[in-house]
């Protein structure tokens, strides 16, 4: 079944059409990669889905039943859609586990239960040994993991990941990819992933959607996308084709 249906969504900023008549469906359990050059409208599309922006046209249908278009972000999170931010937003003065507890409190009002769930999530993302230090003393890689743990603590069915690998070293990226794979395989969370690291996104995704100037120019399996002439032209470039073979 379709967990998320994006239907003819358009978002304009003044004269600029950031997202132009985009439609696609996301199956439950699927990992969909979202790629495209800078300014293609990837993050804008995320913000429309997560409720940070109101679309000018189109609808977002969740779970085939709920029209969540234009709901406030906290309502959308309650439905089971969590997101991370491209620029990480830790609650700096709180400890790592307290950060994650904020997410866990969405599903429980019991402090002990929230802490138990938060520690689970912290352990799962590999921050177990740093659970009680302030979030401000985490490294960039640590903060990315914290974003993941917080989002996971809200028990999402759909997770929107906005460039979790940006700013990480290749070794750190590999570990995060592994973690994201686990989130899908072990927790059964459906994924919508924005990423610039091609190798990572190609191996992680079941399908890839390509945005260019706000339009969806292709959506297909990674192997097909890598050979799509329009996509190569718009974004991947000739060198990618060569490097991949």
């Amino acid at each position: 079944m379709s967990l998320l249906i994006v239907e003819n969504v358009t978002k304009r900023f003044g004269g600029l059409v950031a997202v132009n008549d985009v439609s696609f469906e996301l199956q439950e359990g699927e990992a969909l990669g979202l790629i495209g050059p800078n300014g293609a409208g990837k993050t804008t599309l995320f913000n429309v889905i997560s409720g940070n922006y109101l679309p000018d046209e189109g609808r977002i249908i969740y779970d085939e039943r709920y029209d969540i278009t234009g709901l406030k972000p906290h309502r959308i999170c309650k439905f089971g859609i969590a997101r991370t931010f491209q620029i990480v937003k830790p609650f700096a003065s709180l400890s790592v586990v307290d950060n994650v507890m904020v997410g866990a409190f969405l599903r429980t009002s019991d402090t002990r239960e929230a802490e138990r769930q938060a520690r689970d999530a912290v352990e799962f993302v590999g921050l177990g040994t740093q659970a009680d230090i302030p979030a401000s003393s985490l490294t960039t890689a640590g903060r990315k993991r914290l974003e993941l743990a917080r989002a996971l603590a809200t028990a999402p069915r759909l997770l929107l990941l906005d460039e979790v690998m940006a700013g990480l070293t290749p070794t750190e990226s590999v570990k995060i990819v592994e973690l994201i794979r686990q989130i899908r395989d072990e927790r059964g969370v459906t994924l919508l992933v924005i990423e610039h690291v091609m190798k990572a996104i190609m191996s992680l995704s079941d399908r890839i959607a390509v945005l260019h100037h706000g339009e969806l120019i292709a959506i297909d399996e990674p192997s097909v996308i890598a050979r799509d002439e329009g996509v190569v032209e718009a974004y991947l470039g000739k060198e990618f084709e060569l490097a991949d073979d």
């Binding site: 997560s50 940070n52 406030k72 972000p73 906290h74 999170c77 309650k78 969590a82 997101r83 931010f85 937003k89 830790p90 609650f91 700096a92 003065s93 709180l94 307290d98 507890m101 904020v102 997410g103 409190f105 969405l106 009002s109 402090t111 929230a114 917080r150 989002a151 603590a153 809200t154």
Partner: peptide
């Protein structure tokens, strides 16, 4: 020690992140 206090502090630290975690800011 309760949810309300965690939510207060989350709002203080970063309102957008709080809202994304389901906090009705």
């Amino acid at each position: 020690r309760s949810k309300i206090g965690y939510y207060f502090q989350a709002i203080r630290e970063d309102e957008e992140a709080a809202a994304a975690l389901g906090v009705d800011t």
